[in-house]
Structures are given as structure tokens and as C-alpha cells.
Amino acid sequence: MEKTKDQTKNCKQCCLPIPEKAKICTHCQSHQDWRGFFSISNTVLALLTALVSVLAIAIPSLYSLLHTPKSDMADPMITLDGTTVRVLINNRGDASGVFVRADVRSDYLAGATKVRLRDDQQAVITPGANLLMFDIIPLLTQDESYQNSVDMIELIIQKKDAPNTDIVFQFGDSDGALMVTRLSLDADKLFELMRANSDRCSAIKVPDFYNGCIGAGAAPDSAALLEMMNGKPDEKNNQNKQVPDQQTTPHQP
């Protein structure tokens, strides 16, 4: 029996005869399947590899020359826990922002009420999530804070609105733009604040302006405002009306 002659085919690249089932040409080393359509020489492959390496180094440098880093702070999440305020703010940019200031704007508490950042290093808002901790110092004594908490309970029972009280926070972006956000305190939150401040001041041995327990920090008309909201007459004003000829001397500090 005669041996059958091996069947051959022509290479797709060099057109020389190769075995029919060959996947790589024995002459030019080119692939005969789908990879043959992407056949490139070793020289071209080396050049492409060198080009990719150069671009990997050059693109970041070029980007840094053309791009100006900028902060992008989202609206923060603000919560109140007693006399502690937690502010969670996310900086979505690639530059740091800054915490500018925080203050209290209230018809009930004195404007001198402090909102103190616990750690000054937290004033720099780096890219990513940042948690800032604040202490509210209402400048009220233990007894004044307790009495104010009782007043807030009365408003809650009567389902009346508390005097307007906002804690305002200001943040600055790297381009100088300001972002202002606030936490509004209703009667429930003011009750929580007053009761916590009363407990805090009960542990203070030496009240002073720094710890705020020296009092009195309530606005001069805050008592009259609460009495009006609760439907109570102003006893002091009634006494003055009943005895118009009574002369009083100013209180000497």
C-alpha cells in the first residue's frame, strides 16, 4: 500500500507551502488562525512597548501641568447629641478645603454662645470623608440650663414652636468659594441641649467663660419671649405698670 502524500496549504503571509494543519508557518513564523490578522513584526512590537512606557510616564506629568487641583465639598450631615455636634463632610475634589467658622444665630440664646471645634487640625478638609466634632457652650449656669430645659418641655407639651435657633457652619473651597450650612434646633433639640449643659456644668468645679458655666448667656429678652409664647404675663412689667411712681436705681455690678 502506498503512503498518502501529506496535504499542504500556502501560508497566509509568505505564501510558501506548509502542512495543512499547521497553526504557525515554519518559514515566517506567522499565525494561521485569527491571530494572523494582527501579525506584527518584533520591531513594531518593541516600538509599541516603548511608546506605552513613555506615555505612562508623560501623561501624569502633562495632566499635572494642565490640571488645577480643586476641592469639591458636598453638603454635610449634621447631628446633635447633647452639647456635641458631629459634622460629616465629604470632599469629592483632589485639593483640601477648610472649615471657616461656626456660630449660633438665635432669638433665645445669646450671640456669645460658642461653637468650639475640638481639634484644630480637623479644620483642614482633606479629600475624602471628614468627621468634625464641635462643643456647644451656651454660657449658662447649671440652674439656668435646667430652667430652660423645663421651658422647652412646656413648649413641647403645648406643641408650640421654639424660638428660632440655628447653628451656622461655614466652609471654604480651595478656589475661595464659601459654603454655608446650618442645623436648626427645635424644642426637642433645645431641651436636649439645655439638659446636657446642666449636667455638664454640674461637674464643673470652677465656672468661667471658657467652660461657659459662669452664665448668664441668655439673651435679655429671652425670658419675656418664652413667657409670651407660653401665655404668661410679664410679672416685672406688670409691677412697673402698677407702681409707676416707684423709683428704682440701676443695679451696680
Rank of each mutant, 00 (worst) to 15 (best):
D120Q: 10
D120I: 14
Q121G: 10
Q122F: 13
A123Y: 06
I125C: 10
T126M: 11
T126L: 15
P127F: 15
P127A: 14
G128N: 06
G128Y: 01
A129L: 15
L132C: 08
M133A: 13
M133F: 15
M133E: 14
M133D: 12
F134D: 08
F134E: 08
D135S: 12
I136D: 05
I137C: 07
I137L: 13
P138R: 00
P138E: 12
P138G: 07
P138Y: 08
L139F: 15
L139G: 01
L140D: 10
T141D: 09
T141Q: 02
T141K: 01
Q142L: 05
D143S: 09
D143I: 04
E144M: 06
E144G: 01
E144Q: 05
E144L: 04
E144T: 15
S145P: 09
Y146C: 01
Y146K: 00
Q147F: 01
N148R: 02
S149P: 13
V150Q: 03
D151I: 04
D151Y: 12
M152K: 00
M152I: 02
M152C: 03
M152G: 02
I153N: 13
I153T: 15
L155I: 14
I156A: 04
I157A: 04
I157W: 13
Q158N: 08
K159I: 15
K159L: 04
K159M: 05
K160N: 07
D161Q: 07
D161E: 13
D161C: 02
D161L: 02
D161P: 03
A162Y: 04
A162T: 04
P163D: 04
P163N: 05
N164T: 15
T165L: 03
D166E: 09
D166A: 01
V168Q: 05
Q170N: 10
Q170R: 14
F171E: 05
F171W: 08
F171V: 08
G172F: 09
G172K: 07
D173H: 15
D173L: 12
D175I: 03
D175V: 02
D175H: 00
G176T: 12
G176N: 01
A177Y: 09
L178C: 08
L178D: 13
L178P: 08
M179Y: 07
V180T: 15
V180E: 13
T181D: 14
T181N: 08
R182A: 04
R182K: 13
R182Y: 03
L183V: 12
S184P: 12
S184W: 10
L185E: 02
L185K: 10
D186I: 14
D186P: 02
A187R: 13
A187W: 14
D188F: 14
D188S: 11
L190D: 12
F191N: 01
F191G: 02
E192W: 01
E192V: 14
E192A: 04
L193G: 07
M194E: 07
M194V: 03
R195A: 00
R195T: 07
S198N: 06
D199P: 09
R200Y: 06
C201G: 06
S202E: 06
A203Q: 06
A203F: 12
A203P: 06
I204E: 14
I204Y: 12
K205R: 15
K205T: 02
P207E: 09
D208Y: 02
D208V: 01
